[in-house]
Write a protein that binds this DNA or RNA. Sequence first.
DNA 1: CACCGCTATGCTGGATCAAACATAATGAGG
DNA 2: CCTCATTATGTTTGATCCAGCATAGCGGTG
Lengths: 108, 108
Amino acid sequence: MRVRYKFWLEDGEHVFGEGLFELLQEIDRRGSINQAARSLNMSYRQAWGQLKKAEGRLGERLLSTRVGGETGGGAELTPAGKWFLQRYRQFRREAGEAIEAAFQRHFS
Amino acid sequence: MRVRYKFWLEDGEHVFGEGLFELLQEIDRRGSINQAARSLNMSYRQAWGQLKKAEGRLGERLLSTRVGGETGGGAELTPAGKWFLQRYRQFRREAGEAIEAAFQRHFS
DNA sequence: CACCGCTATGCTGGATCAAACATAATGAGG
DNA sequence: CCTCATTATGTTTGATCCAGCATAGCGGTG
């Protein structure tokens, strides 16, 4: 038996969660939505939809994108995107550890 | 912006979570699945299904039930049910508080 | 013996959420 | 001007979960 969990940020509606976190992280690393999506084993369509929705709800751009050109185009995080990514990474780590610790204390 | 979260216990599959917790708590308080379900604003059908599934996966009875009689019947927690209820209540509180605290630290 | 409140289940239609498919457009380079 | 990798969307199909309806049986009580 083990504990599972998920958390996310809301502002009325779902705004930022695990999926978006991993996606941004991978885009930051690889420089394109497409490659990030593939590396996370999801479709470009899905990744793009998630990003679009989040940006709409945040009222803020997370990515700046380019179309065409040598590499076909690409994406990189805006300052707001980077801010979220880092904040969330830290939060996520601490929250996850706390949950695991509480689980250990009470079960097992 | 606020944080939302859920957690649950798995043993391969989902075994015990928020829904079941509230349900057990209410059954413990009221002495019947039916009344517990109504007070939680869910159908008896739904409550019963949840309980049944959980018991199946745990391989353990959480309730002992009576059918017929003066009050029509009723349900009360087995020792295993009480054990889960109390453990989970404590775990849940601590985990929730830890998550909120981490959220405060990193956002807001 | 009819009634009441409860346990105990089956079934079916809807609703929501994800996956798959399709297509347009961009801009550097051969 | 054609190819290539990418952004950018619409649409459609499928799958899965949830809600509501229906029904049966039990055992006190009036």
